[in-house]
């Protein structure tokens, strides 16, 4: 793959809002090697996904007898019924609770902190900001053992709250960084006029800063939400009851339990991804910009 892709130099980049220039024609000249490489890469990406999808609709007999890449000869929904009958609804609900329970407070608290850091002054706020910045460079997953100890000591082990609290904490540094960059972009005159109108900082935050930074808030919410939704390590370590499983963990134990029934296992893969796929179809731009929150420049 590397060799096929490294040869062609793709066409010059064009900005999305470009205006037709007299060079427009030349730029649009066909670039066959790049196009070919692009289609090859599509195969690399799509074949596994196609395989997951078609296999999830095969019966077990079909799985063993048919060509693995052929469309199912007798498409069946049995696998999906089986996954749903295996408490999928409960795991789904757990994932929703943990994702919302972690994302909403993480974004709200980070927004408040970012507002204070941008608007305030003084040594206290400066040190808090420095602390959050330091948190960006640390691989927080490496602190999982003390987190486990802490959760036990707080009597939270094996509860959904045990997943929510560390998830909020891990999300805070990057969320504060991004939101404070956006709040800083709000023109000072607007803050000034709020002050002249006699608004308190609290009112300014909710009535001025919040509406003006809404796109950034949606972006970081998606970024954090997807991370929590797909998170595996925290649930693996901090819960043990089957009824508290979130989707990735349920997926893992399901494949351990039904390792011979590949179509059913792959149906569970499809079902756990479906909500995000729906989100992708509805709000692709938001989701993609959410994913690179803070990294694109």
């Amino acid at each position: 793959m590397t060799t096929t892709l490294s040869k062609p130099a793709p066409a010059p980049a064009t900005s999305p809002t470009r205006q037709p220039t007299r060079f427009g024609r030349r730029v649009r000249k066909l670039n066959l090697p790049a196009g070919a490489a692009g289609w090859i890469w599509l195969a690399v990406i799509i074949i596994p996904i196609y395989y997951i999808l078609i296999t999830s609709f095969k019966s077990q007999a079909g799985y063993f007898s048919q060509n693995p890449l052929a469309l199912p000869s007798n498409p069946t929904l049995e696998n999906y019924k089986m996954v749903i009958a295996n408490d999928f609804g409960r795991y789904f609900l757990n994932s929703v609770i943990v994702t919302l329970g972690a994302t909403v407070p993480a974004v709200v608290f980070s927004f408040m902190a970012a507002f204070a850091i941008v608007r305030g002054s003084g040594r206290f706020l400066k040190s808090v900001n420095a602390l959050f910045l330091m948190g960006l460079a640390i691989p927080l997953q490496a602190t999982i053992i003390p987190v486990y100890l802490l959760i036990i000591k707080m009597n939270l082990y094996d509860s959904l709250l045990a997943l929510i609290l560390p998830s909020i904490a891990f999300a805070i540094p990057l969320t504060v960084l991004i939101l404070s960059n956006f709040i800083r972009d709000v023109p000072n005159e607007l803050f000034e006029s709020m002050r002249l109108d006699g608004c308190s900082e609290w009112q300014t935050m909710w009535r001025l800063a919040l509406p003006l930074t809404k796109p950034a808030i949606v972006t970081v919410a998606i970024y954090n939400g997807l991370g929590v939704w797909n998170g595996f390590l925290l649930p693996l370590i901090l819960t043990q009851s089957p009824e508290l499983r979130v989707l990735p963990l349920a997926l893992w134990s399901f494949q351990g339990q039904y390792s011979v029934n590949i179509p059913a296992v792959l149906a569970s893969v499809v079902l756990t991804t479906l909500p995000i796929l729906v989100l992708y179809v509805i709000g692709r731009r938001q989701l993609l910009s959410g994913l690179t929150a803070g990294f694109s420049k």
């Binding site: 608290f109 408040m112 902190a113 204070a116 608007r119 305030g120 808090v128 308190s200």
Partner: peptide, 9 residues
């Protein structure tokens, strides 16, 4: 009052 806003995070 701004200092209080960072407290939860």
């Amino acid at each position: 009052p701004l200092n209080w806003l960072v407290v939860p995070a």
